[in-house]
Amino acid sequence: MTTAARTTEVAPAVAGATSAHSERLAIASQGLTKRFGRQVAVNGIDLAVPRGSVYGFLGPNGSGKTTTIRLLLSLIRPTSGTHALLGRSMPQAASAVLPRVGALVEGPAFHPYLSGRDNLCRLDAADRTADPATARRRVEAALDRVGLLAAARKRYRAYSLGMRQRLALAATQLMPRELLVLDEPTNGLDPQGTREVRSLITNLAEDGTTVLLSTHLLSEVEQVCTHVGVMHVGHLVAQAPLAELRARTVARAVVTTRCPDEAAEVLRQQHLTEIATGKDQAAGVIGQVAPEQIVEALVHAGVPVRAFTTATPDLEDMFVSLTGRGFDVSG
């Protein structure tokens, strides 16, 4: 129910997209759909990723995130729907737009018998917009940026998963990019590497780079993202600025007491809603009521309060309420 309401809020903005509006969006799609045989992997999604945002693209494994990213980069053709990157229609503008887009798609992939440096040189050689004269310098800078300089001469096959992931991130840094599409960039990284990637993303975002960050790690989203889109079985079930999603969530007051029924009665008098009681707990949605006032009322009514907490649901609770099912693999 909430899900439907949220998607419709976004839809009109995209449907009525003027050129000025789409110019403000780094990624804009209308009804993007991909069918593989009978299975609908991506079902009519309207992505709107504002320029300069760090957009957390959330969803359980198999929800269609990677297929969406492949569609965005025109690696696969949509069954129906259209999309634009950096204000230009794809795939027509691919050769003009994609050099300004750095991408990490479904994990790193390089030639195993070439060194990390040679692999980057090969990608750079394939880029017609890259200046050969500065290739060496850009490759070194990219390796340095992800902390791989020391291992640059090693063959890729000898890299650990974390090093491979770093090399894939380095490949996105070969040229100045306006948009980064990162598919689970911290997958396989140790905690130190994860922190480094987060700070890399934050730094890039400060420079004005738009980032689409596909992930199933909610903590990642909470730490770096400004916007969130949630995928579930091929549908984009929610899309909004993170702050707005947070504001929509409702805080609950939870009273721990040996007299839950009396506590519930007080909560009701204080105009809390959705009141529920448990064995030694009473809880309700706070709404506009100040928590101090509730505590005062409880004490005044002689309810023996052992503990009083107010809790705002975190992103994970939000996610569960949006997808209905939580974090399982979508079929």
């Binding site: 500065t134 800078a141 100045p176």
Partner: peptide
């Protein structure tokens, strides 16, 4: 700053131009 300036000015503007880089 080093990363930013790594492309020559001409090259960067060519890459950014909508009509496509000359080098193509």
């Amino acid at each position: 700053a080093a990363l930013r300036e790594s492309g020559t000015p001409g090259e960067t503007s060519a890459a950014a131009s909508a009509s496509g880089p000359r080098s193509q």
